[in-house]
Computed example of a mutant assay.
Amino acid sequence: MFELLAAALLSVQPPCAAPTGADALLARPESILVVGDNHGTVEIPAAFLAIVCEAARQGPVTVALEMPETERVLYRNAMAAPTEAAARNTFLYGAFGNPRSTDGRNSEAMLEMMLGFWRLKAAGHDIAIHPFMAVESRIQGRDQAWWELEMAYGISRALVSRPDARVLVFVGDLHARKIGYAFWPDVGVPAAGHLPAADTFTLHIARQGGGAWQCQQSCGPQTGHGRYDPDARGVILGPVEDGAYDGVLAVGPTTASPPAALQPATISSGSSS
């Protein structure tokens, strides 16, 4: 049944609608492509999914996500689910379905992105999800630099487990930096900076204003000010912030995406889409 579904989906698979410049990004030789995220938006996960879609058309892909490593088996089961409804329900057993998971990494848009990965696999592409966030990595009394080191190790495991696959990493924009950030001295070298430089290419998410669901003084829609050309769109290659990143992903002003756990189900348990 799954094979028939895959053949049907492959025959009608729509274009990836990857951002402008994604072709140049995917033509690069690096095995690890890191895309920064400003958690809690609709547009950034959608853009990342579109890049993954284009990459999956070219060859095997492992998607490394800033999600708990303890959910690795759950994600594997979700990706193997026979229907989209079953995949959604499986994802919701984890952090996505926890009402206390209120930061932007557990948004409705992120869940939809994950279901997009399922659709790609169902259509016959070689794609796997690798959550890499260590659950107990902070050392008591030590600063965030240790956390960044743990994250880098978790990302590296994605390449170790599937060495023939390109690794596309979706992680908070600060962790996507290759060099330290004076505003956050306790971060030390961010996660991407611990990865082999010759095999790692990173994109900064352009701040172009709009909203995001985040937890600051309280959790909810937050409005941000734009600091980048509001008309820019797509993947723009070239060093950013003195080499902290290798390029920019510009999606335009963003809109907030609330936690998936707060949203009603959109697919019935009997759907086979």
Rank of each mutant, 00 (worst) to 15 (best):
V73W: 01
E112S: 09
T102W: 10
G36K: 06
A85S: 12
I51Y: 09
H39Q: 13
M79C: 09
P19V: 07
V42Y: 15
T83R: 01
S11N: 08
I51G: 11
T70Y: 11
M110T: 06
L33C: 03
E112K: 14
V35P: 15
M79R: 07
E69C: 02
E43S: 08
P15E: 12
V35K: 14
P99K: 07
I51R: 11
T20Y: 12
R57E: 04
R88H: 09
T90E: 03
M110A: 11
T70A: 10
A87H: 05
S101L: 04
L120E: 07
A109F: 08
V52I: 04
A86K: 06
E54L: 13
A109D: 04
L26P: 11
E54V: 03
L115P: 11
L26I: 07
C53Q: 07
E30F: 10
N38A: 09
F117E: 01
F96Y: 06
L33D: 10
P60H: 01
A17K: 14
P68M: 07
I44Q: 15
D23P: 02
A81Y: 14
F91Q: 05
M79E: 05
P99V: 00
K121G: 13
P99E: 06
R88K: 05
A22E: 05
T62S: 14
A18D: 06
A55Q: 15
R119N: 12
E66N: 14
L25K: 04
S11I: 08
R100Y: 15
A46S: 11
A46T: 05
L26S: 02
A78G: 02
C53H: 03
F96Q: 00
P19Y: 12
E112R: 13
G116Q: 09
F96N: 00
F48H: 14
R105H: 10
R105L: 05
E108N: 09
E54I: 08
E112W: 01
K121I: 00
E54M: 04
R57P: 05
T62F: 10
R76N: 12
A46P: 00
A55H: 12
